[in-house]
Simulated scan of single mutants.
Amino acid sequence: MRAARKQADRSAETQRALIESATVLLQSIGYAGTTTALIARHAGLTTGALHHHYSSKDDLMLGVLDRASERVARGLDMIVHAGGETVNVHDLIRHLWEIYGDPEYWAIWEIIIGTRKDTEFHTKVIAHRQETMQRILYPWVAKNIISHPKMHEYGSLFEFMLIAIRGLSLERFLDKPPEYFEKNLLLLTEMVEWKLAAIRSTQQ
């Protein structure tokens, strides 16, 4: 039993090393340049070891997407709201920005954009992103924000926040200074707080 556990630990460690190497390379040289041979070399492994865990580059890219989904879930679990129906918008937006604004998330954009000419795999990538929304993000909203008849308005507002944050993250490619992001995150926070107050006021 102990030997099996050690083998499982080694397997998980190898998979983690491969995914981390793939993420780094996707950020630095893009999707097309990130080959399985280069990923294995960056991780200090053989291509045989890589293919033992991931049968293809596509399979490994899905592993990178899974890692991003897990990070989103952990980030949301860290968000503390002020009880009742009052959400701490500042903390919510900051945590989402830590996820989507992190340069590590560029790897996800590389996969999404880089696979657009591969219709079959691109469809799987988009489905994975949608599944993440359904499995992780929407249940969190339902549990922490939506507890009344205004669920459609709250859900739409949450989706708008994600759209705005993901869009802002792309501005990193234009080498904008930190204060640019700070200014726009504060503006987004003010807009969301105003809309939340407007939604709640109609329930009085």
Results as ranks from 00 to 15, higher is better:
G30A: 02
H128Y: 03
L186F: 13
L26T: 00
I79G: 07
L65G: 03
F158W: 13
L174V: 14
H95R: 15
V80I: 14
E70C: 09
S69G: 10
D175P: 08
Y31E: 09
I99Y: 03
K124C: 11
L65A: 01
M1N: 10
T14G: 00
G101D: 08
A164N: 10
D58F: 04
I93T: 08
N184L: 12
I93S: 01
T115W: 00
M191R: 13
S147N: 12
K176A: 06
H148S: 10
Y138K: 13
T35V: 04
K176M: 14
K183D: 15
E171I: 15
E104L: 09
V192T: 06
R10W: 08
Q27H: 01
T23P: 05
L187V: 13
L25P: 01
V141A: 03
I108K: 01
Q130A: 11
E120L: 08
A17I: 07
S55H: 10
D66R: 05
L196N: 09
A37S: 02
S28N: 12
G101V: 09
T23D: 02
E171Q: 15
Y105H: 09
E120M: 07
I99V: 14
A37Q: 02
S201A: 11
A73W: 07
A82W: 14
I112Q: 03
I136A: 02
A4Y: 12
R2D: 15
I112D: 00
T123W: 06
S147P: 15
L188A: 05
Y31M: 06
L26H: 02
D118M: 02
G114Y: 00
E182L: 15
S156G: 04
G155C: 04
D175T: 12
L170F: 13
R94L: 13
S169L: 07
F181R: 08
Y100G: 05
H42Q: 09
D91F: 15
V72R: 08
T202Y: 12
L187F: 15
I99W: 05
T47C: 06
I126F: 01
H152C: 11
D58I: 08
E98I: 14
L18Y: 03
A37C: 04
L168P: 03
E131R: 03
F158M: 15
D9G: 01
D9L: 08
G33Y: 00
A40H: 00
R16Q: 10
G44N: 00
A32I: 08
W194F: 13
G155F: 01
N184Y: 12
Y100D: 09
R172F: 06
G84Q: 05
E153S: 07
E70N: 14
G83T: 05
T119K: 06
L137T: 11
M191G: 10
M78H: 14
A68S: 10
A142G: 09
L137V: 15
L162G: 10
K183T: 14
Y54W: 04
E190N: 14
D9M: 11
E153P: 05
P149S: 01
A73P: 14
Q27V: 00
I112E: 00
